[in-house]
Simulated assay, not measured.
Amino acid sequence: MILVTGATGTVGREVVGLLPAGVGVRVMARDPAGVVGVAAGVERVAGDYGDPGSLARVLRGVRTAFLVTAGVGGGDDAVFVAAARAAGVRRVVKLSAAAVLDGGAGDLITRWQRESEELLRVSGMEWTLLRPRAFMSNCLSWAGSVRGEGVVRALYGEAAHACVDPADVARAAVRVLTEEGHAGRAYTLTGPQALSAVEQTRQLGAVLGVALRFEELGPGQARAALAGRYPPAVVEALLDSALRLKAGAKAGVQDTVSRLTGRPARTFRQWAAAHAASFGALTAAAGPQAGPRAPGAGAAGADAGP
């Protein structure tokens, strides 16, 4: 039995959909009714990291678990690892982040991921770590301004970032979850090329058939925008992450996706084409007559993640 946590999230729902028929699959969610579109035979079970009793029920009979946590700085990983060990789980595949390898990264999010990885290493269970760069799907945060104004706004718009399609992360996860030979390994997952937010804007506009405009955000503007979505400590961690992006720390490309999955990692243009509908119909003001405008200086968005 394979347990998938985070089954309603960006990667987890893709993993559930890609696991092969005939494999026993159980998904954990606070509200199992919210897990929709899964294949017949997939078990949906209520579970919460804050309720160890529920984890014991969820983990009964599970041999392999896909672990996704989002409570930055919290104890969800520790609770899950303890429950998995007690339940006799053989292997845990953890969704981490590529920033753990960056010696210059000391922000809250990266420290939390490093600590979570260490919990698995000393757990006595088999473990595998997936360390993606930020997801291409973070660009969906641009949808409102793209639809309404034909504009993308981001911090450090000219810095290159080897962001990855979350569907490729899911494909890699499925291989690791269903094959032997991955115990004790860590895989860094990137896209096939490093692109700046300026170039992403150009490619997205080409896919949508419009000339999108890029506007550079200053650090203060980025902080204000992020403050509406995240707690203060996470905002500062994301801004610190953006500075590392500006310094070139996230531009390295690896071929891990193709080696694990047997197919090339998808490009940003391919991702944009697959998600064009998410950016909706543009207003007349956002049409082809709105020519591109070069940013003053910079590198990709603060929202890019670790």
Rank of each mutant, 00 (worst) to 15 (best):
G191L: 04
S96D: 13
A233K: 12
P292I: 10
E158M: 15
V23I: 14
I109F: 14
S196K: 07
G181T: 01
P288N: 09
V27C: 07
W127D: 02
A281Q: 15
G73Q: 08
G71H: 15
T110N: 05
A251M: 06
R153K: 15
T256A: 07
R13Y: 06
A29T: 13
E158R: 11
P288D: 13
S145R: 13
V235C: 04
E115M: 10
T188G: 12
L212K: 00
V257W: 02
A237I: 01
Q289P: 13
D107G: 14
A143Q: 06
V198W: 11
V68Y: 13
G280H: 08
R131V: 00
L177G: 07
T201G: 10
R223M: 03
A39D: 14
A99I: 09
Y187T: 06
R175A: 14
Q221P: 00
A304C: 15
R293W: 07
V62S: 05
A194G: 06
A160M: 15
W112T: 15
A159L: 04
V15R: 08
R266Y: 03
L177N: 03
A29G: 10
G280A: 11
R213D: 02
V257G: 03
P264L: 00
G12I: 11
A222L: 00
A274D: 10
Q289I: 08
A277R: 14
A276D: 14
E117K: 08
L140Q: 07
A7L: 05
G228L: 06
A186W: 04
F268W: 03
T256N: 01
A225P: 05
R266L: 05
R121C: 05
R269L: 06
G50S: 11
A233Y: 09
A33F: 11
G287P: 11
V92Q: 00
K94M: 12
A285R: 13
G103T: 12
T69W: 05
A227T: 12
G305K: 05
S54Y: 14
V210C: 04
S278T: 06
R85I: 06
A154D: 11
R57D: 14
A249I: 08
V89L: 00
T261C: 05
T256I: 04
V235D: 01
A173W: 03
G218K: 01
R63Y: 10
A33Q: 14
T10G: 08
E115V: 10
G150C: 00
R259Y: 09
P288I: 10
W112D: 14
E14N: 11
Q113M: 15
G22P: 07
A105Q: 03
A294W: 14
R153I: 11
G12R: 10
T190P: 02
T69D: 12
G144Q: 12
Q203P: 13
T5K: 07
T178P: 05
G103H: 05
L67E: 07
R26E: 09
D165Q: 07
E126V: 04
W142A: 11
A154R: 04
V81G: 00
F135T: 09
E43G: 15
V169H: 02
A97N: 15
D303S: 11
V16L: 03
P295Y: 04
Y156R: 10
P132D: 02
